[in-house]
């Protein structure tokens, strides 16, 4: 459930250039509210894009703008630190805090202007919403793979982010569970009305999720557009 006054939905525009050894990333992204799937084989630079957008790494050159907020402009020396970019990032390994309960994990990203009891209540609501209300007082060590994914999603949306980044969070799950979570992500994004950048190497997942598909190879964008166009004859990225 988003905050009562969610910020106006805005698109993500990013130009990123990064050279590390023999690898060079050079991409221009335009992600409107909705789901953008960034696809590519391992080592193509897709996770690096998320790290750069989140501010966990800094490009050599580039500019990142979300709506009217400039998060990064290398030329002008602007670099908003990660904790001030209002985003949510679901890591491949999920990165749930092992020393906190599910409720405290979800509460962690919420604005602390609100009373603790209110935040706790909202965390419980969110856990129930993603189907794991019963996990509230348990710690991540006891969660199954699917439960951990749901808690991670609840934590991500709890702070009413203006941008959601998913780094292959469903890669370790079986097909049925993945389908359930894809449907969950779809409904959550529709409710938030913000851009979501989903990194995956699963063609099936991209077809199910992506309003826009960006295919990336060796740090360069090789195709972009609707799934029906970009993935028309593709069954696997390893082909």
């Amino acid at each position: 459930m988003p905050d009562p006054d969610p910020p106006k939905p805005a698109g993500l525009e990013a130009t990123l250039r990064l050279a590390r050894g023999e690898f060079t990333l050079d991409v221009e992204l335009s992600c409107p509210p909705g789901i953008t799937c960034v696809m590519g084989p391992s080592g193509s630079g897709k996770s690096t894009i998320l790290a750069l957008v989140a501010g966990l790494a800094v490009p050599d050159l580039g500019r990142i703008v979300l709506g009217d907020q400039v998060w990064l402009d290398r030329e002008k020396g602007i670099a908003v630190p990660t904790h001030k970019r209002h985003l949510a990032y679901v890591f491949q390994g999920l990165a749930l805090f092992p020393h906190m309960t599910a409720t405290h994990n979800v509460m962690y990203g919420m604005s602390r202007d609100k009373p603790r009891a209110e935040r706790m209540e909202r965390a419980r609501e969110l856990l129930a919403k993603v189907g794991v209300g019963h996990l509230g007082s348990r710690r991540p060590r006891t969660f199954s793979g699917g439960e951990a994914q749901r808690v991670a999603l609840a934590r991500a949306i709890a702070r009413s982010p203006q941008l959601v980044l998913l780094d292959e969070p469903f890669s370790a799950l079986d097909r049925d569970l993945r389908k359930q979570l894809v449907d969950l992500v779809r409904s959550l994004v529709a409710e938030l009305g913000v851009p979501l950048v989903h990194v995956t190497h699963s063609v099936a997942e991209a077809r199910m999720l992506g309003d826009q598909i960006i295919r990336i190879e060796k740090g360069k964008i090789v195709a972009r557009g609707k799934a029906s166009d970009v993935l028309a004859n593709v069954t696997s990225l390893d082909e």
């Binding site: 949510a88 990032y89 390994g93 020393h99």
Partner: peptide
């Protein structure tokens, strides 16, 4: 400590000091 736990705290809006006291030192 898994560096992604520290990164997660940062993406969840925690300042370096809050990350230190709520994630780094407890872990």
């Amino acid at each position: 400590i898994d560096p992604n736990l520290i990164n997660a705290a940062r993406t969840l809006g925690a300042s370096p000091l809050r990350t230190l006291f709520t994630v780094v030192l407890p872990l």
